[in-house]
Amino acid sequence: MPLEPFERVVARYGPAVLRVCTAVVGPVDAEDAWSETFLAALRAYPRLEPGSNVEAWLVTIARRKAIDVHRARSRAPLPVEELPLPPASGTEDDGRSLREALKTLPDKQRRAIAYHHLAGLPYAEVAVILGNSEAAARRAAADGMKTLRALHQAGDLP
């Protein structure tokens, strides 16, 4: 099957790529990372092997671009070491505090959660991106979720 029009790729995977970018660098830098990702993908697209896993390909580019964007802003190295203060109140900060909490997880756990729970990739594809096995990807996500749940129960998350 030949490559489909790139517009369809953007429509189908744009939301997942945005979630991955947001999970890795936060909502502000995520837009730069998203833009860099799809521009790079558009450039390389005609050379993509037809029948490739487009989603995993995009997520791989997105992860690299998100890290590039983050480095260019020369902020604290990923992942963030300290836990943010819990938000004072309300639901507006929920997403941000969750993202901040995500950043405190070890790299593989954070990525496994981002790709599986936010981007919707099955564990087999998460494993391809992480370079480990399906079982290891599943375990990393589960361990990360356990930490997040513990934080949540301790009242550090809304």
Binding site: A11, R12, P15, E55, I113, H117
Partner: peptide, 18 residues
């Protein structure tokens, strides 16, 4: 093309992280 933004193969799960 792509009428729905969420037309991917994998439905976006509604976990607390989403």
């Amino acid at each position: 093309l792509g009428g729905s933004w969420n037309a991917g193969r994998h439905p976006a799960p509604h976990t607390p992280l989403d």
